[in-house]
């Protein structure tokens, strides 16, 4: 091949390969996307029930920018609310669903919705041993790593991400419920 001159065959072959790839992938995408979206939606619904263990019915609420779920028990009494927030982990965002008892100002439950932490290391934030320590915490606790929160060894950034997300969720919830509702 002469210097500076590109054979058209190279361009054509590569273009055809990329086009075939794009067509194939758009089919696979179309086929799998609804299933993936379904997983995400059912994960959200499950997460709401997981973080509000006593709730039997949930109600979707959209208040301005904030989207949250209200959880009611069998008798229709409000148990608490569940909302999402995101913290910054080691590899990327950590999306957390937090269940809050707004009356007693306590955390009812935590569930990790999405994260991209290192498998086996930061990904241990999803384990119950780590998450259970947040249950029952009062809004006024310091949430300070090491002192108030047990950090997963080797995964400080991931632990901080979760803690940030929980604190963020509490702040958001207090804004909505601020001044007593």
């Amino acid at each position: 091949m002469a210097k500076g001159k590109i054979e058209p065959r190279l361009v054509i072959v590569l273009t055809i390969i990329v086009m075939c790839s794009a067509v194939l992938l758009s089919f696979v995408h179309q086929w799998t996307e609804p299933i993936i979206a379904e997983h995400a939606a059912s994960a959200d619904a499950e997460a709401v029930l997981a973080v509000l263990p006593e709730a039997e019915e949930t109600e979707f609420v959209s208040a301005g920018d904030l989207i949250y779920y209200k959880g009611f028990d069998g008798a229709g009494n409000l148990i608490g609310i569940a909302l999402q927030d995101e913290g910054r982990g080691y590899e990327g965002g950590i999306r957390v669903m937090v269940g809050l008892d707004m009356e007693d100002e306590k955390v009812l439950g935590i569930d990790i919705l999405e994260h991209s932490e290192t498998p086996g290391l930061g990904s241990r934030i999803t384990e119950e041993d780590f998450l259970d320590q947040f249950v029952g915490k009062s809004f006024s606790d310091s949430f300070e790593l090491q002192n108030d929160i047990d950090v997963i060894s080797g995964a400080t950034a991931s632990s901080r991400g979760v803690t940030e997300a929980i604190k963020g969720a509490i702040d958001k919830a207090l804004e909505v419920y601020g001044g007593g509702e």
Partner: peptide, 30 residues
């Protein structure tokens, strides 16, 4: 595939299969 563009061609073909694996594993083994 002409020899000059074989590496980019291989990469595109490999990436296609990897993306298929990525989508299907997220759909069926979440």
């Amino acid at each position: 595939i002409p020899a000059e563009v074989r590496i980019p061609s291989f990469i595109v073909i490999i990436a296609t299969f990897v993306t298929i694996v990525d989508y299907t594993s997220r759909a069926f083994f979440p």
